[in-house]
Design a protein around this nucleic acid. Structure first.
Length: 549
RNA sequence: GGUCCCGUAGCUCAACUGGAUAGAGCAACAGCCUUCUAAGCUGUGGGUUGCAAGUUCGAUUCUUGCCGGGAUCACCA
């Protein structure tokens, strides 16, 4: 529709000898303003030297109204040109929903674009805490959105099982192991103190008894055990949320394959790195930073920056066209260095999309939930899922724009009532499912899309609420694209809420099950279409759609 | 102090990326169930979009400066 009108307008503009401009079509916020609107006249007004309404008038006069598409074209406000779709067009278009069914909303807008999506990437030194949930779900939904728009997505988890943090983990477990054996042995000053350390220590005792009292200085056994244990737990938690990564990329492989050394060498060759005070420094100041950064410590160990740069370079080398990273706001300082580094190596960082989400705070009604890392009683993501359920977790974490702080109300998420937004959506789906079950008793198989397509009298769909609903449903494919390309999953939750709302209104105004069988089937068709869109939307959101509630 | 993010109804947040009368949910108030799920629907009240300038046909959106909140500024990741 949009492209048809666009074409026609361009022709008209040329005929009128107006300059060619970028014209914009939008769906107006207010339904009274029609189904589609363009600002063409206002954009043209200045260069043409007439007032916008005159320009609009000259354009509208030349638009031909084809009843199979348009029912009206109007000029409104400061010079908007508003188009109204004909009911016939809307109903005709809606058949797509039945035809495409579970694929309705998918597109090949970015067909074959090789995309690397990296997220979570928590090191295996502990459990995912509740705050991690935001990143987990944002990444999950963005991954789905990218797939729905044709991207070829590799879901990746980057981890480091070497270095300081792992040493600390090993030391923490070892200390707890000794303590559990009754020895007076101190925990490391900055060690991990969570309950899980005790769990791990106890498991080791159960398996090995006290045979590991005297162990090597590297605490190799404890380190390996801790890593395996933590990773298993992390993956378990992710699995509960249907999150599955295709690649677990080990930072260590960058060392063993010499990629790290390679980067240092190239930096030095380009005078982007230099030796000083026994360390190697990256000239971050060349890129506007306040001071240079150490990339190799005087101990010979690289800081995180260097492997991160090498890692991103490898992503390019692996042939990805689009690289998406999701980080929490606490990582914000590291991003410029990495991008500058990769850029310096000759890669186009326009193809790197870094999504930074703000932090999460948890409240339980009026009470603020503390969850400090040092605290022994960490509030884990598992705890949160246990408390409020998978669907509420999935929905709540993406329902706000990534740029704002998220306040997660546990009491609200837990509440099984109308206060809880996730139920509103699921309720609409369950309600439709219930209606379709009734239809079965009237011998109409409303779950059979092909059957509905061939036997429904679509001309019976003509009520305002029905047409409003169909129009809303038809926005879905554009909505998916728009959410995907702007990396804004929260807009999908807003949209689906509107779909549910529009459906409830239709349901309230018009009875579906009734004596007029043809009419009943027409309305069942509208229901089936709505169910498809809600289900597809929920699939993207990783939220389940119950048939009954 | 530098950098980044945020400031919208009593509360939590939207606003299709510069559009028309700034919208939802919760909370408050008033209605709607002998019929398909009332976990629903309809209506009322609630706003100087932190403040002040600027850019233009038009600003919650872009620019600048203040004010307030958060994140971050390691030879930790």
């Amino acid at each position: 529709m949009k492209s048809l009108l666009q074409q026609q307008l361009n022709t008209i503009i040329a005929e009128l000898q107006y300059p060619a401009v970028d014209i914009n079509f939008e769906t107006p916020k207010v339904a009274a303003h029609g189904d589609l609107t363009t600002n063409a006249a206002m954009v043209l007004a200045k260069s043409v030297g007439k007032n916008p309404r005159q320009v609009a008038q000259s354009i509208v006069e030349r638009i031909s109204i084809d009843e199979s598409f348009l029912s009206a074209v109007e000029i409104a406000g400061p010079g908007f040109i508003n188009f109204r779709f004909s009911p016939r067009y809307v109903v005709e278009q809606s058949k797509r929903i039945l035809q495409e069914s579970t694929a309705f909303g998918k597109s090949d807008a970015a067909k074959g674009r090789k995309t690397n999506l990296e997220w979570v990437s928590a090191n295996p030194t502990g459990l995912l805490h509740a705050g991690h949930g935001r990143q987990v779900l944002i990444g999950q939904v963005i991954g789905n959105l990218l797939e729905w728009t044709g991207h070829d997505v590799t879901r990746e988890y980057y981890f480091n099982n070497a270095g300081n943090q792992m040493r600390t983990l090993a030391e923490s477990i070892y200390a707890r192991y000794r303590q559990e054996l009754g020895d007076d042995y101190p925990s490391p000053e900055e060690g991990y103190k969570g309950e899980y350390i005790t769990d791990i220590a106890k498991e080791i005792i159960a398996e090995k008894g006290d045979s590991l009292r005297e162990t090597d200085a590297e605490r190799t056994y404890f380190r390996k055990y801790g890593e395996t244990w933590c990773f298993a737990k992390i993956k378990e938690t992710l699995a509960r949320l249907n999150v599955k990564h295709d690649v677990f990329y080990n930072e260590d492989s960058l060392y063993s394959s010499g990629k790290i050394a390679e980067v240092i060498e190239e930096f030095k060759k380009r005078d982007l790195a230099y030796d000083s005070e026994g360390a190697v420094w990256f000239r971050a100041t060349k890129f506007g930073a306040d001071k240079d950064r150490v990339i190799v410590k005087s101990t010979g160990e690289p800081t995180y920056r260097l492997p991160d740069i090498a890692y991103h370079r490898e992503k390019f080398r692996r042939g990805f066209d689009l690289i998406v990273d999701i980080f929490g706001a606490d990582h914000i300082a590291t991003i410029p260095d990495v991008l500058n580094g990769v850029n310096a190596l000759g890669y186009n960082t326009d193809d790197v999309k870094v999504i930074i989400h703000q932090m999460v705070s948890f409240v339980n009604g009026d009470e603020v939930v503390k969850m400090s890392k040092r605290n022994a009683k960490t509030y884990t993501l598992d705890d949160l899922i246990d408390e409020v359920g998978v669907d509420a977790v999935a929905y709540f974490f993406v329902m706000r724009s990534v740029g704002t702080h998220l306040e997660f109300d546990i009491a609200l998420a837990k509440e099984q009532s109308d206060k809880n937004p996730v139920y509103y959506l699921q309720y609409a789906h369950a309600r439709i499912a219930s209606i379709l079950r009734h239809a079965a008793t009237a011998e109409i198989d409303a779950n059979n899309a092909a059957n509905l397509l061939s036997t429904t009298d679509f001309s019976l769909i003509k009520e305002k609420e029905e047409l409003d609903l169909l129009k809303k449903l038809l926005e879905f494919p554009d909505m998916v694209k728009s959410c995907a390309f702007s990396f804004e999953p929260h807009r999908l939750t807003t949209y689906l809420r509107e779909v549910a709302e529009t459906f409830h209104r239709f349901y309230h105004e018009h009875r579906v099950i009734n004596e007029d069988k043809a009419l009943m089937q027409a309305r069942l068709t509208v229901c089936a279409m709505t169910k498809t869109v809600i289900a597809n939307g929920c699939t993207i959101l990783s939220v389940s759609c119950p048939e009954k509630m």
